[in-house]
């Protein structure tokens, strides 16, 4: 490991095959992200991880690390862009945090806090997608979905069940359940599935366990996501870019 690139003025080592995001997180530098997850292939939909590489804006989760490139991330221009992206996601869905079971444990909300988003400022869309409460153990609230596709990826790649998919185009794009009835009860999803664990917002929820953690002890109550994401991120990777430390982490 002797190749490096510059990130906000510091030197970041990387191994061949790593993306800018992977190398940055491994070296302890946080780049805001929402659809990126260390255990899955990059997705590139949230755009929160946008950085400037040699002056051009690119998604750091998909940008291969290259020797001697100059990467800017924590600059006001990009943080303002990230703020707008978070605001757009909030305006697109029904993110009524005061009654959401994921509040305090939600990645979108924690990013809003970290980026000092006070309000959306956009016209709210108030989508009207019915809940799917058909499954005995699991509830789906589609109006909070940010289309990160983590559940889609987890269900097909890890669980081997292919329970979820995205359907539709443009603003009507939405999460669906892969069953003839379209209902979760007609799939083989289980509480122990990876797809249950990866939703960064309050779409996929286990029934009857909401509001179980006291306020003050929830995941993002005490420390901002910029610190926690580094705890979660793999620190070592093998030559092929696979992460040994990721095994078994939720």
């Amino acid at each position: 490991m002797n190749e490096t690139f510059q990130l906000d003025g510091t030197s970041v080592p990387f191994e061949p095959g790593q993306t800018v995001m992977q190398a940055a997180l491994a070296a302890g530098h946080y780049i805001p992200h929402l659809c990126y997850h260390p255990e899955f292939k990059p997705h590139g939909s949230c755009k929160l991880c946008t950085v400037k590489v040699n002056g051009r804006t690119v998604a750091s989760c998909t940008m291969p690390a290259e020797s001697a490139i100059v990467v800017e991330s924590d600059i006001e221009e990009l943080n303002a862009l990230r703020r707008s992206l978070v605001q757009m996601l909030f305006a697109e869905g029904n993110h009524f945090c005061p009654s959401c079971e994921k509040s305090g444990n939600c990645v979108l909300q924690a990013l809003g806090y970290d980026l000092e988003v006070h309000a959306t400022g956009f016209r709210h869309l108030y989508p009207d997608r019915p809940l799917d409460a058909s499954h005995p153990d699991i509830l789906l609230d589609f109006n909070r979905c940010i289309l990160c596709e983590l559940c889609v990826r987890a269900s097909s790649e890890v669980d081997g069940k292919n329970v979820f998919a995205l359907a539709g185009r443009g603003i009507t794009k939405h999460l669906i359940v892969n069953a003839e009835s379209g209902l979760l009860k007609d799939t083989s999803i289980a509480l122990t599935d990876k797809a249950m664990q990866v939703c960064p917002v309050g779409v996929i929820l286990p029934k009857r366990v909401g509001f179980s953690v006291p306020i003050g002890e929830r995941r993002y109550d005490q420390r901002p996501i910029s610190e926690q994401a580094l705890d979660d991120a793999p620190r070592r990777t093998d030559a092929s870019g696979n992460c040994a430390a990721c095994e078994g982490t939720p």
Partner: peptide, 15 residues
């Protein structure tokens, strides 16, 4: 407050 900012929980009646 949440209501002034995004309609808040009362905006759940928008459905």
């Amino acid at each position: 407050g949440a209501c002034a900012i995004n309609g808040g929980l009362p905006a759940q009646r928008n459905h």
